[in-house]
Simulated assay, not measured.
Amino acid sequence: MKITVFHEPWWLSAVSGGLVHESVVKRGNDVVGRLPYVFSRKGPFRLLRMPAFTHVLGPVVDSGDGKPQTRLTRRLAITQQLIDQLPSTSELKLCLDPSLDDGLAKIDGLAFQDRKCSVAPQFTFEIDCRRSLDDLLAALDLKTRQHIRRAEKTYHVRSLDQPEVFIDFYLKNLTAFGRTSRIGFDNFPVLFSECRARECGIILSLFNENDEPIAMTFLVWGHGTMYYLLSTRSRHSHDSGAISLLLWSAIKKAHELGLFLDLDGIYSSGTARFLANFGGKLKTRLVVRRSRMPYSALQYVKAQYSGNESNFFT
């Protein structure tokens, strides 16, 4: 069964504090489908979500052998059985990668839709970093290349092995922008330790000439793909070349490891225009959601009064 790093049991245990649940479908003694999830609470409401730091988490299905249409039908049936096992909650929200299982995972969206869930697209860019560095550099927008070359004269990038420093920098930056974090960082040190032990995660940090941090990003990888998972920048950084240099450093790291780089979510046209300069291809994820009254009514009211709020992963 093809999975992402987010489906790994060690990942799910680390990010959830061991509180992950699963729907499971078996054929005889063999597991042919599983769907991990966690519960969270908002006041009296019980929510079924993905754990923190987990940006894609859908069904894992063994669609077996045979013709594509046979495997597609089999996957649909297994996914529906997984959904039917999910407990009743005020809201269900998951993000799916439809490229899994040779693209057959697209049918998962239909399975959730059939079970009264809404299905909406989420966009990201994916860069094939298995190409040569010359090809990757040539794929960059001309002005972006110039910004990176200029930034290399002022800034330097190095890895950071202190997760608490990343957390502190991230939260201070949010405060400086007048925002609060929707992410709980309690499990982040454990997650970082697990990633480092498996050599599948790194914090890249960008520093200025005074050795002051300007921006940081947490990269994780597995099963052929690296994710630009969590990034933050100082409010005092107005140099787009600095952020471009950090992104280029991530591209080079993915190239070194022979991976695709997923830039992990686009939430505005401005972000799309910036990320399009790095030579990636647009990729679509599926966000499935099912809300019940009165929780959906409460969320609607909140949305009317928070229209200017920036998007963060939750």
Rank of each mutant, 00 (worst) to 15 (best):
P51M: 00
R49T: 12
D102S: 15
D97W: 03
S296V: 15
G66L: 01
E91C: 13
V119G: 01
V15W: 03
S296I: 10
L219C: 04
L72F: 06
I266G: 00
P68W: 15
K302V: 12
R273A: 11
D161Q: 07
V61K: 06
V24H: 07
P121S: 10
V190N: 12
K281T: 05
Q304C: 13
D114T: 11
D97N: 14
I243T: 15
L76K: 11
N210V: 09
Y227T: 06
L298M: 14
E209T: 15
L275Y: 07
W221Q: 04
T271K: 05
N210W: 03
P36Y: 00
G43I: 03
Y295G: 02
M1Q: 11
D239I: 00
F192A: 05
L140R: 02
E8K: 13
T175V: 11
G258W: 07
F188S: 07
F123I: 09
G307A: 15
F218E: 03
Q81G: 08
R115G: 09
D135Y: 06
T232A: 11
Q304M: 14
K2R: 14
V38K: 06
I214R: 04
R49P: 02
L160H: 02
E209V: 09
L104S: 03
L171S: 01
D30S: 12
S234W: 04
V56D: 05
V288N: 02
M226P: 01
D97R: 06
K143F: 03
T175M: 10
